[in-house]
């Protein structure tokens, strides 16, 4: 096999997410504590980028055009043997549809890996919750609340729904398809940084990391570019003075 490693490295959102995972695994913090000031231009940022570039040496040369769907298709086609992939995609990979029997039978989901001697895995946890809008009548709000509460209650759990998501409700028994997510949680993986200005940094990451991976510039320049792009956007948006 020529290019054994797969990854959702498409320039833009996917690539930025890979950096967020890797940098988190390195133990990096994205912002100065309690402020919207970005702080990724450090040793951990450089190490995260270097690790990503080292991995790309084992990937299909077109990795910058492969998003999570294309990477899943590469897996099902039997073109890659190892990949760090989103938990939400494992359902597609583990069902018999779309892949050759020998690929399907040998597909296994395991725990995410740590990086650079870190203690937590190089991944981020994503979770969904629900809220009730403020600008509706009290009666509607109560009805919405009750409906959503029922929709996420233990009563909902059955053989079919168990495998569809990782339900954080009592009585949930993990299906094999969710083994990776459960192990990530057991290993102490961090949730994706839910900060109001994180989206701006995610966009700046996605726009600039490719310059480093293609060898146009070194890691420190790329990180400085990302910080500058984020700072301009966060200033416009009113997060930074």
């Amino acid at each position: 096999m020529e290019h054994p490693v797969g990854g959702a490295y498409q320039a833009g959102w996917n690539l930025a997410q890979e950096f967020v995972n890797m940098y988190t695994g390195m133990g990096g913090e994205f912002f100065e504590a309690g402020t919207p000031k970005v702080s990724i231009n450090n040793d951990k940022g450089v190490a995260a980028l270097e690790m990503m570039k080292a991995l790309t040496a084992y990937m299909n040369p077109d990795y910058l055009t492969h998003d999570s769907n294309a990477t899943s298709a590469e897996w099902e086609a039997g073109n890659v043997a190892l990949m760090n992939m989103w938990g939400s995609r494992t359902g597609v990979l583990l069902d018999a549809e779309g892949s050759a029997p020998e690929v399907h039978e040998n597909t296994m989901v395991g725990a995410p890996m740590t990086v650079g001697g870190g203690t937590i895995p190089a991944t981020t946890l994503w979770w969904d919750g629900w809220t009730v809008a403020k600008n509706i009548s009290d009666a509607d709000a109560v009805a919405t609340f009750l409906a959503l509460k029922h929709g996420t209650s233990p009563a909902l759990l059955n053989d079919e729904t168990m495998g569809q998501a990782v339900w954080m409700i009592p009585g949930y028994k993990p299906a094999p398809v969710n083994a990776g997510v459960m192990q990530a949680m057991a290993m102490g993986a961090k949730p994706y940084p839910m900060l109001p200005y994180m989206g701006l940094l995610h966009t700046a990451l996605g726009d600039n990391i490719a310059d480093f991976l293609t060898g146009k510039e070194d890691a420190a320049t790329t990180l400085a570019d990302i910080e500058a792009a984020y700072t301009a956007a966060a200033t416009e948006k009113g997060f930074l003075q």
């Binding site: 320039a11 989206g199 726009d207 490719a210």
Partner: peptide
């Protein structure tokens, strides 16, 4: 062409500003 890594244009910037994680 998923060419964002190699080529960008002014219209592409407008698109990513309007469709990004946080709209600019």
């Amino acid at each position: 062409f998923n060419a964002g890594a190699h080529a960008q244009s002014l219209s592409y910037f407008i698109y990513s500003d309007l469709g990004g994680e946080t709209r600019l």
